[in-house]
């Protein structure tokens, strides 16, 4: 269970305004909204990468906001995260990138590491890519390596920031299907940020809509599809006419 209470954050101008949200355990939650709506910032607030101005975040009953960096390190072990720009370490091979979180959690047995890395690469259909460097991969391949790294620790909560941004429609759908399959297998709690609303709705259990820093909608995928709220309706159905 991830709970967010009255979260607010401003940089130059307000990015999040009084956002409250609850994501139950084992749920695949889709966070949607137009550009610059505060989606990435909200995601980063959940793991303490961004410190909110007001409000609280609790993960499985433990309050994350206000923890110091050392305590946050412990909390973050429960999480896996895929970053918007993948954030692969460009000086490490693909295999070492995926092994990195495991090494940091104290796994030192090289055979076990190699096995778990190979298993992850098979899951994202990149078997045998261990010794490649990230710079030589295509956009879709980098994304999939990012997914492999985010899921390698079998974290109970996984955050995906724009898992399909900049990819062609076929590759995007494959990525979304892969993430859904991963979630079913591990029964992890997943929060997925995307502006690719059509494909996202094919995999989510619940959906939240963030607009100009405010959470305008929070409900099941079916409720989102039939919502009468003008902004939600316009965004979900991709209409040109409307308040957006």
């Amino acid at each position: 269970m991830i709970e967010v209470h009255g979260l607010s954050k401003s940089f130059a101008e307000p990015v999040l305004r009084d956002v409250s949200l609850a994501v139950p355990r084992g749920c695949l939650f889709g966070l949607v909204g137009p550009g610059a709506a505060g989606k990435s910032v909200l995601l980063k607030c959940l793991v303490g990468l961004v410190t909110p101005d007001r409000g609280a975040v609790t993960v499985e009953g433990e309050t994350v906001t206000g923890l110091d960096e050392l305590a946050l390190q412990r909390v973050r072990r429960r999480f896996g995260m895929l970053f918007q720009n993948n954030a692969l370490f460009d000086y490490l091979t693909v295999g070492e990138n995926i092994a990195f979180p495991l090494r940091r959690m104290g796994v030192t047995d090289e055979a076990e590491l190699a096995e778990r890395v190979a298993d992850r690469l098979r899951a994202v259909s990149l078997a045998g890519f261990e010794s490649r460097m990230p710079a030589g991969l295509s956009g879709g391949q980098k994304k999939r390596v990012g997914v492999a790294r985010a899921t390698v620790t079998r974290a109970e909560i996984v955050l995906y920031d724009e898992p399909a941004a900049g990819l062609d429609p076929v590759t995007s759908q494959k990525i979304f299907d892969l993430l859904r399959r991963e979630q079913r297998e591990t029964n992890a709690t997943v929060i997925m940020v995307s502006s690719d609303i059509d494909r996202l709705l094919t995999v989510t259990d619940r959906v939240g809509l963030l607009h100009k820093g405010e959470l305008l909608f929070d409900g099941t995928t079916d409720e989102a599809r039939s919502s009468r709220h003008p902004v939600v309706k316009q965004f979900i159905h991709g209409e040109v006419e409307g308040p957006l």
């Binding site: 412990r74 995260m81 990195f100």
Partner: peptide, 14 residues
């Protein structure tokens, strides 16, 4: 800017 530092922090690295 490429979020590699955030990724480090997510792996429990200062």
């Amino acid at each position: 800017v490429t979020e590699q530092v955030d990724a480090l922090r997510m792996c429990g690295v200062d």
